[in-house]
Every structure is written in structure tokens, then in C-alpha cells.
Nucleic acid binder design. Structure first.
Lengths: 239, 239
DNA sequence: CGCGTTCTTGACTGCTTTCAAAGATGGTGG
DNA sequence: CCACCATCTTTGAAAGCAGTCAAGAACGCG
């Protein structure tokens, strides 16, 4: 009731987490407190958490989990957007988290252990991430360049919508074609040619960093694409 | 101390979970009890849990999480082996869990909520699954057919080893080339040709359902492959 | 022994990559 | 305000990896 947690209502991260699980004043205040410890990370820099901390929250910007090979090949396995959880587990593979744009992160609220609402939102976030990983595997395994690109754009539109970062069919896509290539398992040359096809066929417009999907419903039909609305994914035991 | 939970020491599922987190008598007894409710699922049938139950444990056999398209294309996103956790969340995509061989499953122990050891093992199992999903994305995105196949075989060997189901560099691979194709985002024809290359170059032998990797270390070096030993993946907060 | 499934093979097509170089774009300093 | 430079985008031609189609061989199970 104090205005303390009102201002952050407009935070994309809070918007997303609220959509995943209804958050009461206590949770919102905890998030508000956590956001005060926000830290900025410059483009191309690695996203890390304070030593000992294993869980972070993306507040703004785009980051990516990237696998790289010794010969210079790269594959982006997952993109992190505002409101996404950042799990910094240690793995044997050469995987790192890189800022694709300037990124703001904060540690997750300390009160988490006692806060069922936030726990629920985080559990939901983890389920969604696994769902996105599954979908990305299907995308890379069986779709051609045109479908891969449009399918990913639909998904990204939906994810940004969860955080309130879309404007109808339009959203900011602040990444290069090269990054898109690393994401979709293609070369930047072929991403470029694919984009030209899609622009020519009036599937999308992309200029000045803003992308517009002209007819998302038709695309979704063609791709068998099902949006993952908030609450679409359910599980009983949340641990 | 009673022999009640001794016999299951030889169960692949228990072997795997014990490798993920040390399990005491209470956890082992709980697993033993759960295994008594084992259920068999025939090949090609969908793997389901009792209504209301959302968590299961694979006891034996091979299962797969499969995405299929309306035109008949299929992509296997993840393979489930003995000791793997089966999360039956509901998702919007047409994803199902199919038995690649006869499969035995059981519900997870009821005592889970109070059993820190089992919780730790399950949390570890979830981390590993995410790690495998990441790696599969990298595989599909950037590796050619030969490397995709060998990389996946190395990983599968390591996973089976966790459950005690390997014999040196040899293990049972009870799936068809068609399934391998659905898994690796290839066609069965090309999987066949790739296997012939690998056999010709003395990379592997595969007959009678048993596969043998001739020089796994050389393969791993060539692929930048890092095995995920038990305990390789760490995270502090396990929720 | 017979039949269905799985494996194998050949020829041809096609999507994507590779290599190389020429434009466009945007930010910076003079 | 413009020149300049780094980055990003666009283009063309040629090569390669994987897909498609079709048919025959081998295998395994009842």
C-alpha cells in the first residue's frame, strides 16, 4: 500500500513474473528491493553473478547462452529476455552467457525461500524455459531456414508480450543478422537471403531495429505454432 | 539394514540416482517401495502416468519426447533412459512421450517431500537434462551428420554409464536408424550412409543391437566433447 | 518358410554454405 | 557539418552436404 512497490509495476521483469504467478504486495516489495541492486553489463560482455550467487533475474536487455567451438563456430542455445531467470550452474561444456545488448540484472530476492508466490513464478519460468529449449530443438532439427526464422520470431514476440514489451505485432529486435544466424544454426549470408524473401512476400518488416510481423495468425497456422500463454504449461509439484 | 533395499542396488535407476546424490537407507527404501508399483509400457505406445501424477521415474527401456508435425515429420527432442525423471507437464505443442523399446516406469516415491537426498538427486537430474537439451541444440545447430552422430553416441554412452549400463566402450543401442534420424534431424537414408562411413573408418561397430565406440577419447578430442561426470554440474539452490 | 520391417544402394535434386567483394549504416572526431 | 572507420548488410558464383524417390537386399519374428 505504500508507493514503494508501485513504481516497479512498470518493470518488464515484474510484468512477466506477475503473468506467470499472481504476486502479492510482499513479493512485489521483495522484487522491488532486489531491483535496487541492479547491475549493468555492456554489450558483448559476459553476464556473471556475484560469486556465491547462483540465481539472477534479467531486468532489461537481451542476453544469450552461447556454446562455442575451438574453430570459431558458435551456437546460441537460448536467449534471455526481461523477466527471465538466470541459472549460473557450472557445466563442463564451454558455455557462456553473453550480453547481446546492454543488460541489467539483479540477484533474486533473498526472501525467496519463504515466498511461495515468487517460488511459483520461478518454477513456472523454469518450465517455460524447458519448453522453449524443446521447441528450439524441433526447430533446428526439422525446419528449413524460412520456417526456422519465422517460428523463432513468433516465439520471441510471445515472450516479449509476456513482459509487456510488444506493440501489437511490432517489437524491438536489437540483434544483428549474424546473431540470428548463430541462433538458428545458419550462416549470416543465408539469414540475409531468407529475410529478403520474407520481406518480399510481405511476411515481415524490419528496419531501425523494430520488427513487424504482418500476419502472425497465418504464420502460426502454417507452422503448427501454438503460443505458450501464461498458464498454458501446468505442473502439480513445483520443485 | 534389513535386506529390503539391498536387492534394488542392482537397479539401473537406483545406480543412476545414487551417482547424482548419495542416498541413505531411507531414500533407498523409498525407491524400493516405489519400484514395486512398476508398470510396463509396450514399444511404440505412449508413456503416461496415472492421472493426477506428474512425476515418474524410468526404470528400464528407452523412451523419447517427440514433437510431430501435421505432415508427418517428427523430431525427437530428448531420450529418456533408466533413472531419468519423467515430467509430465502440459504444453501447448504436440509433444508426446513414446516408448522406443518396452519401458518400465514407476511413480516417484511419495516420501519425496521430506527426503532431502532424493530431492537433491532429482534436482541434479533436472540440471543434467537441461544440460543435455543445451547440448542437443548445439549439436543440431552446428554439427554435420558425422559429428552429430558421434557426439550423440558419446553422450549416450556416458548417460548409460551413469546407470551402470555400459560395458567398457560397448553398450546396447536398441533403436532403428529411422529413430536415430528423427533424433539427429536427418533422414534415415543419410544416417545409413553416415554409419557406413563411421564403420569403414573404424570409428564404431554396431551389430546385433550392441554398439562399440572404438576410440572414444579420440572422438571426444575431435568434437570438443566434455563428459558430464556425476557432480560436474553444480548449483547451490536446488529448487 | 513367409511376410513385414529395417537396411542398403543409386541417381538426381536442392537447400545451405563458402568465398569474395561491394554497398550501406552509424557513430566519432576534426 | 563532413570525413572516416568499423560494423553490418547485400550480392554473385560455385561447391557441398543432405534430401528425395525408388527399388532391391537383408533381417527378424511368428
Amino acid at each position: 500500500m505504500t508507493p514503494a512497490f508501485r513504481p516497479t509495476d512498470s518493470s518488464p521483469a515484474v510484468t512477466r513474473l506477475s503473468a506467470l504467478a499472481p504476486l502479492g504486495p510482499v513479493s512485489l516489495a521483495a522484487l522491488d528491493e532486489a531491483q535496487r541492486q541492479r547491475r549493468k553489463i555492456a554489450v558483448h560482455r559476459e553476464v556473471t553473478l556475484a560469486a556465491g550467487s547462483h540465481l539472477g533475474l534479467i531486468l532489461s536487455g537481451w542476453a544469450a547462452r552461447v556454446r562455442h567451438w575451438s574453430d570459431g563456430r558458435r551456437q546460441i542455445m537460448h536467449v534471455l529476455l526481461a523477466g527471465d531467470l538466470l541459472d549460473m550452474e557450472q557445466a563442463p561444456d564451454p558455455v557462456s552467457t553473453i550480453a547481446l545488448t546492454p543488460v541489467e540484472i539483479c540477484p533474486t530476492p533473498r526472501t525467496t525461500s519463504g515466498d511461495d508466490e515468487l517460488m511459483a513464478a520461478f518454477a513456472q519460468s523454469r518450465m517455460l524455459e524447458r519448453f522453449y529449449l524443446y521447441r528450439h530443438i524441433a526447430r533446428l532439427g526439422r525446419l528449413n531456414a524460412v520456417d526456422r526464422l519465422t517460428d523463432w520470431l513468433l516465439e520471441t514476440h510471445d515472450r516479449l508480450a509476456l513482459a509487456g514489451l510488444t506493440n501489437g505485432n511490432r517489437f524491438d529486435l536489437p540483434i544483428t543478422q549474424e546473431t540470428l544466424a548463430d541462433l538458428l544454426g545458419l550462416t549470416s549470408v543465408h539469414v540475409n537471403r531468407t529475410l529478403q524473401l520474407l520481406r518480399r512476400d510481405l511476411v515481415l518488416e524490419w528496419s531501425g531495429g523494430a520488427l513487424c510481423l504482418i500476419d502472425p495468425e497465418a504464420l502460426a497456422r502454417h507452422l503448427d505454432y501454438q503460443p505458450a500463454h501464461a498458464g498454458t504449461i501446468k505442473q502439480a509439484s513445483g520443485f
